[in-house]
Amino acid sequence: MKAKIAAAPYLVWMVLFILVPLGVVVYFAFTTADGAFTLDNITEFAAYLPVFVRSLLFAVAATVICLVIAYPFSFMLSRMRLNHQRTVQMLVMLPMWMNFLLRTYAWMTLLENNGLINKFLALFGLGPLQMINTGGAVVLGMVYNYLPYMILPLYTVMVKIDQSVVEAAQDLGCNTLQMTAKVLMPLSVPGIVAGITMVFVPSVSTFIISRMLGGGNNLMMGDLIEMQFLGNSLNYNLGSAMSLVLMVVVLICMSITHVLGNEDVEEVM
């Protein structure tokens, strides 16, 4: 078959711009600025452990909140009339088409100390609350930005769940909670797993959201990496080591996905 040759330019491109760059990151992670082998970059990373832990915590929090918000919504969406489903799905997707910088900027103006939310609270004699420059604001920003990534895969699996299965559970005496636990949950595992990865991966590696909403005290892994490459700490080797750690975290996350959900998950993603 000659058709195989059509992929040749792509294969060259893939090696040059996907595999080689990742190799370069690994190379930099294990060398000094002079190119000698070292493990210092990895051990130096230990000093940044609090930031690493914070990134994981924020990302887990954002993922859990997204799941809790999105799960009932996706189920409702999947039970709506077909033409309503299309419209509501479009309404969920619409904000996602805005650049994430603009979406995050919108929250900056809302959460400020003299922002609209605090102005609103003041009407009832409440506040002002310190919202901007807190960890909570960062998590909020991630939830806002990545919520549709949770809704879509959940909706995709739920729309395939037969309504008669749901009704059968209810007829047999399940209340809503029991029905969810015994019928809905097991049937929607691929969607849950896909949604978790799709929210967790961008959350744990974000760098602008944390800076815009979290101020200087809520830096995440992404911010540290950025500083090593473009910021004032400029150290490609340390930055590469941090990137490598981040990649390993994501890889672990992906392999858990793989084990839990196998091909069904990939289909939903």
Binding site: M14, L19, V25, V201, P202, S205, G222, M247
Partner: peptide, 22 residues
């Protein structure tokens, strides 16, 4: 392999390409 740019965090794709160009 083709999925890599999809699943890898964007920042890593960015950083790795920057290193290549450097």
């Amino acid at each position: 392999i083709s999925h890599i740019p999809n699943v890898n965090p964007e920042i890593i794709t960015g950083v790795s390409m920057m290193l290549l160009f450097v």
